[in-house]
Design a protein around this nucleic acid. Structure first.
Lengths: 144, 144
DNA sequence: TTTATTTAGGATAATTTTGTCCGAAATAAA
DNA sequence: TTTATTTCGGACAAAATTATCCTAAATAAA
């Protein structure tokens, strides 16, 4: 469903959010360890999340990644996915047709649009805050 | 959502079904033209669909692909996807965790399971017959 | 039986995605 | 100012997916 990049990006962002709620910055190294992702690849993903303004990065000793606390409940899962994978999972025909819409639909058009809309709504309604809170109170986990 | 292989496979199967409802076999060449897919790659996919028993293949002149007519409305979209992509879109954690279930869920577990179940139900309830009929009566299309 | 046609299947290539490496730039602390 | 630490960013490598090519096998018709 999601690309590996997206999986790592979501996990990393949730972990950063938990730490940010305690006013802590976290290093790339710590993130990669805690979410069980390849360090260098994770660095690339965090870079693009930083460029998108979702996370804040800081170089040097005491540097690392953090999320502005006020942002944590305005950021939605949708934003993270969009920053990493772009809109490719939200647009386009389910069977890869260039011309496919309600007027000239592919055979699976309606059903596909339905499912994808479910996904979109879910992503738009899921806040980083709720994901981070669930992790923080031990309801969910990120490793293994 | 689906792999390219799956997209081609679904389109090809629907096209073969339409022809089969008229008791006609179709050649690889015709299929690839009609569904706008790379010939040789499509050949591989049809091969695996034949091995799965979803389509029937026949060599030699007047050969080609066909689907047993009685099968057309028992075959579901689910079967086609499963034959090509296996169960990877139906199982596994949304964030790639090895251990993720209701007892020890990842942060998106519940929401992800919900969406994926929608998808699964849709695929299981969509028959090849309805897809082929829609194409046959010109309600839907496969090219471009 | 020969020939033409069509799928099967193995080898190989191109592209995309995933992942690594390393020096540069920034920056905090000694 | 020097040093240690950390992210940035470009180049490179590995793996997976997508796609091509070619010969073999099957088979129908001449």
């Amino acid at each position: 469903m999601f690309s590996k990049a997206c999986e790592y990006g979501i996990k990393a962002t949730i972990y950063i959010a938990v730490k940010s709620m305690r006013q802590e910055r976290v290093s790339l190294k710590e993130i990669a360890e805690e979410v069980n992702s390849p360090v260098a690849f994770t660095a690339k993903i965090l870079q693009s999340l930083a460029k998108s303004g979702i996370i804040d990065s800081h170089k040097g000793p005491t540097g690392g990644f953090q999320i502005e606390e006020a942002k944590i409940d305005t950021i939605k899962l949708h934003d993270i996915v969009h920053a990493i994978d772009g809109d490719k999972i939200f647009v386009g025909c389910g069977l890869g047709l260039e011309q496919c819409d309600a007027n000239q639909p592919c055979p699976v058009h309606d059903k596909f649009v339905g499912i994808r809309n479910n996904l979109k709504v879910m992503l738009q309604n899921t806040s980083l805050y709720e994901l981070a809170t669930g992790l923080d109170i031990g309801l969910t986990h990120l490793k293994r």
